[in-house]
Amino acid sequence: MDRRRELFDDLVRAETRIYNAVGERLRVEHGIVTSQFELLRYLGAHADARVADMATVFAAGIGAVSKGVDRLEARGWAARVPNPADRRSSLVRLTASGTALVAAAQRTFDEELERLIAPSLTEEQVDAVAGALGAVRRALEDARIGLPIG
């Protein structure tokens, strides 16, 4: 049981440090924070996304994601458009400037991950850790565990 506690501590602390380091580099080089990059990157891969879908993917509240999208819209990186399938919701898509920003920031993101992770893990270890964490994530998502309430 103690190994699971160690896993939790190491996982959370490593994630926080990586997230903060990546965020600092993105802020300095592109004027965005990690949470903005994650939303932008998601929109780049999922054209015409719904806020509710994004909230599920990021295990965040719909209100928080909606405010994040509001901030992207205010900067001209994303736009909401009417949802033709449901007049009560809108779809979110990247603008041309948002697409350009994602492309530039993705290179920075990849470089920073390489800088932070490569000295500690071999490619085989990265594959093993990614596989293990992916399995845990899928199990939690399938069981709808860890979603915000409300």
Score class of each variant (00 low, 15 high):
residue 136 V to N: 02
residue 84 P to E: 06
residue 141 E to T: 13
residue 68 G to A: 02
residue 146 G to M: 06
residue 21 A to V: 05
residue 86 D to Q: 08
residue 70 D to W: 05
residue 142 D to G: 13
residue 39 L to I: 10
residue 27 R to I: 07
residue 125 Q to G: 11
residue 19 Y to F: 15
residue 65 V to K: 02
residue 112 E to W: 03
residue 98 G to T: 08
residue 142 D to Y: 04
residue 18 I to N: 04
residue 46 H to G: 00
residue 33 V to Q: 11
residue 120 S to Y: 15
residue 15 E to V: 01
residue 66 S to R: 08
residue 29 E to M: 03
residue 40 L to Y: 04
residue 145 I to F: 13
residue 47 A to W: 06
residue 79 A to N: 06
residue 109 F to L: 02
residue 142 D to H: 10
residue 68 G to M: 02
residue 48 D to Q: 11
residue 100 A to C: 05
residue 117 I to F: 06
residue 99 T to L: 13
residue 80 R to D: 02
residue 145 I to R: 09
residue 134 G to E: 11
residue 23 G to D: 03
residue 86 D to F: 04
residue 78 A to V: 07
residue 56 T to D: 12
residue 49 A to L: 00
residue 73 E to L: 04
residue 122 T to M: 10
residue 83 N to Y: 04
residue 95 T to Y: 08
residue 10 D to L: 15
residue 7 L to N: 09
residue 130 A to R: 12
residue 17 R to S: 13
residue 115 R to P: 07
residue 8 F to R: 13
residue 88 R to T: 15
residue 146 G to V: 07
residue 120 S to Q: 11
residue 13 R to L: 12
residue 138 R to L: 11
residue 75 R to A: 15
residue 103 A to L: 13
residue 99 T to N: 09
residue 134 G to D: 07
residue 63 G to W: 02
residue 99 T to P: 04
residue 8 F to S: 10
residue 128 A to P: 04
residue 53 D to T: 09
residue 47 A to C: 03
residue 36 Q to F: 09
residue 121 L to M: 14
residue 58 F to H: 07
residue 120 S to L: 15
residue 13 R to W: 05
residue 16 T to F: 11
residue 96 A to R: 14
residue 75 R to F: 08
residue 148 P to E: 09
residue 90 S to V: 10
residue 59 A to H: 09
residue 109 F to V: 00
residue 121 L to N: 10
residue 55 A to D: 01
residue 86 D to W: 08
residue 50 R to E: 12
residue 79 A to M: 10
residue 107 R to K: 15
residue 133 L to E: 06
residue 133 L to P: 04
residue 49 A to S: 12
residue 44 G to L: 03
residue 117 I to R: 04
residue 56 T to G: 04
residue 123 E to Q: 14
residue 74 A to Y: 03
residue 18 I to R: 04
residue 132 A to I: 05
residue 82 P to D: 03
